[in-house]
Design a protein around this nucleic acid. Sequence first.
DNA 1: TTTTGTGAAGCGATTCACAGCA
DNA 2: TGCTGTGAATCGCTTCACAAAA
Lengths: 227, 227
Amino acid sequence: MVNGKNKKIQKLVKIPSTTVARLPLYLRCLKNIQDEKTSLVSSFELARLSGHNAAQLRKDLSYLGEFGTRGVGYEVDELVRQISKWLGTASVRSVAVVGAGHLGQALCNYHAFINKGFKISALYDNDKDKVGKKVGEIDVKHISQLASGVLDGPIDIGVIAVPARAAQDVATQMVEAGVKSILNFAPAKIKVRKGICVRNLDFSTQLQIIGFHLASVEHGLTSECCD
Amino acid sequence: MVNGKNKKIQKLVKIPSTTVARLPLYLRCLKNIQDEKTSLVSSFELARLSGHNAAQLRKDLSYLGEFGTRGVGYEVDELVRQISKWLGTASVRSVAVVGAGHLGQALCNYHAFINKGFKISALYDNDKDKVGKKVGEIDVKHISQLASGVLDGPIDIGVIAVPARAAQDVATQMVEAGVKSILNFAPAKIKVRKGICVRNLDFSTQLQIIGFHLASVEHGLTSECCD
DNA sequence: TTTTGTGAAGCGATTCACAGCA
DNA sequence: TGCTGTGAATCGCTTCACAAAA
């Protein structure tokens, strides 16, 4: 409004974390659309498919740039390209999982990750009986090899799939080994140095949130639901 | 402020979903405190342990009631009781898992659920080879038995641990069988009738969010991190 | 004095409503 | 005309700052 530089400034503005969290969802819907042979999509249609409203979708996309054509809509392929770019899908991310229990095995056997740009490149455990065995295509190595495992190439994401009591210790070792970000499944708050991105994803917590909503409904306090 | 009914009114006010999401975390920290023999905790201490600020913690707790003593702090046991109550832990919640793959097995073998008030009471799959086998203590039943399985007692929470293409179908069957809420691990948007609480928890989405932050840092756009 | 509980201010996300453009 | 892109309004959560209470 003041001058022509506003668009540049806009691009440097922090993208709301809520928007970031929706991007993977939009991308998923767009890929479903690609499988059919539609090449154009309106904000209304994509909003409907992803379960949001059209204004929000347009605002979200506007943080990334101007990809649509007024009066027409968005080109599906272009939008897929752009969102993928922002999600950092240019390179395949290397993931190391620590904890070869059922959850660790579930992750290693989930082959859809590779389509989304993630490759599980190593699996570690401290159980001597598991070390040396294979889970899917992946050798189970001893946790002590985590540091040297990074020599095979940098690890972008470390996944903590161990019991809570071991979580902090594993996190510390991951950071020392050069892991840049952590997905933590253990029900424990882990502390790492600033600059390491940590996301927590504890199943119990999720069930407890649902439990709250069930209790609310039972007590007649609300009929509302989860996010 | 206007009259004495305000406290009652306060209790009827909707509790922010962000607050609800923090309650399980507070509870976890409090239980850790209980294991030591501290019986009192201040908002500052609990905030530090849970990684939030004291004002937010007090505001969160104030939605549930007035449990603290000014100048003193909160009694740990009392706070545990109150938060548990709001999370609906009065009764044990019955959980049915559909999908006996690695993830379904991981869930069934996670014995800590019972301490948090959740009991996995059934596991279903459509694979004839899996039906009849045991996962931990739990018999694998055929998905077609979901409806009649509810006769053994109501199912509070249905967990979807099947591939995306089957997710909507499973969700529909769950709702027909009387399941009241759903935790969905499949990367698919599922539609259910109003009043059924659905939470989505797709691993790929979580990795993609981390991917965004990694890309941001790599491009020097930010040094900020995830939630 | 210490720490809670809470109005009020601040801030960020959502939604509205329409100008801008094909 | 139809749909995007976006200021402005609104909504809701977080944080501040202090009165109330032990």
